[in-house]
């Protein structure tokens, strides 16, 4: 697919033209230096899209093998049946040895290929250990401008869901009966408490019942030791049982996710802003490391600037570019 002008494409992305959305996603994945300005321009022009502001970004995460792709597929069908459009970013790990990846999420999904209101893009982590894929943050913003709901599906427990908190309005953690690790992480406060907890594979009835009970216990312990980390006040994390293969519990899951979005309404803007600040910090740290941070007067100062300046219609990418130029300028002065 030949690259085309992002400014022209931005309009088509807002209208959910699949070819334009796909090109925009190709662009945000492009690591070449000369693509960065175009990415920043694209994201800036998508930021004010009505869907981007009013829509819902949902993170779906959990350990490997809990049936996240099948669940995503079931959720997508149900969301479409409710008349809303949906974009999916499915993130899979890259091989450390070859750099390649097997992006298998589509294999577990079944959807109507002629449906203009559903878009699925798979991304590889490309060596971002424990993090989201390089382009995932940007990809979510592209899809958010085009679709009512954006779902980011990632694998992992203990790391990547920290990133997902910064990109998603609502974080859904999926486990299956007998996931000991998750319980330990939750209890020990290694893991932030998700907004919605799902026990998938609830067709294993007895096990599922026990898992739900265990989760209740773990949440209780976590709250008792003061791990809440929640800015959304009195939200009570619901615990749901689903069976993606049998299609049970899906409607309840969507209701719970919607309820959280509604609950967020007064604080949503602040939450997204914090996510943007964090993304900007991550970008800058990745590019320039400790030295870059100290040259620009430390993390607190950079963070404060990001909090101020990102409000002014600037995207994390463009701010990061600007800070990079400042850093380089200072480097030149001192040398």
């Amino acid at each position: 697919m030949p690259p085309s002008d992002p400014a022209n494409d931005a309009d088509r992305v807002r209208r959910a033209d699949k070819a334009a959305v796909s090109r925009a996603l190709n662009l945000v994945e492009d690591k070449r230096a000369d693509a960065q300005d175009r990415v920043a321009a694209l994201l800036a022009s998508l930021k004010s899209a009505p869907k981007a502001i009013g829509g819902h970004r949902v993170g779906l995460t959990g350990p490997p093998g809990v049936g996240k792709s099948t669940l995503t597929s079931a959720v997508a069908r149900a969301v479409r049946a409710r008349g809303r459009t949906m974009g999916v970013v499915a993130v899979d790990p890259s091989s450390i040895v070859s750099g390649g990846s097997l992006l298998g999420d589509r294999a577990r999904m079944s959807f109507d290929p002629s449906d203009a209101g559903l878009f699925v893009r798979s991304l590889a982590t490309a060596g971002e250990v424990g993090g989201l894929a390089y382009a995932a943050n940007s990809a979510v913003r592209v899809l958010a401008a085009a679709y009512d709901v954006v779902l980011i599906e990632t694998t992992g427990v203990g790391q990547s869901e920290i990133d997902i908190v910064h990109v998603a309005d609502t974080v859904v953690l999926v486990i299956q009966p007998g996931s000991g690790d998750v319980l330990q992480f939750l209890k020990a406060g290694i893991m932030e408490i998700p907004d919605v907890l799902v026990v998938n594979k609830a067709d294993q009835e007895e096990l599922a019942r026990r898992a739900v009970a265990d989760l209740r216990g773990a949440l209780h312990t976590a709250q008792a030791v003061g791990v809440s980390g929640r800015e959304d006040g009195d939200w009570e994390t619901p615990i749901l049982a689903t069976s993606a293969t049998e299609g049970t519990g899906i409607e309840e899951l969507i209701d719970a996710v919607d309820a959280h979005r509604k609950h967020l309404e007064p604080t949503l803007k602040a939450r997204r802003h914090r996510g943007e600040v964090q993304w900007m910090l991550d970008l800058f740290m990745r590019k320039h490391g400790e030295h870059g941070v100290s040259t620009l007067h430390g993390l607190t100062e950079i963070k404060a600037r990001a909090e101020r300046e990102l409000d002014d219609g600037e995207t994390p990418l463009s701010l990061c570019e600007r800070l990079s130029r400042e850093y380089v300028a200072k480097l030149c002065q001192t040398s």
Partner: peptide
């Protein structure tokens, strides 16, 4: 293909041309 470094999208069996 993954082992030589491609990002590979594999869809499984029985997919239609569409």
């Amino acid at each position: 293909a993954r082992d030589v470094g491609f990002d590979v999208v594999y869809e499984g069996i029985r997919v239609s041309p569409e």
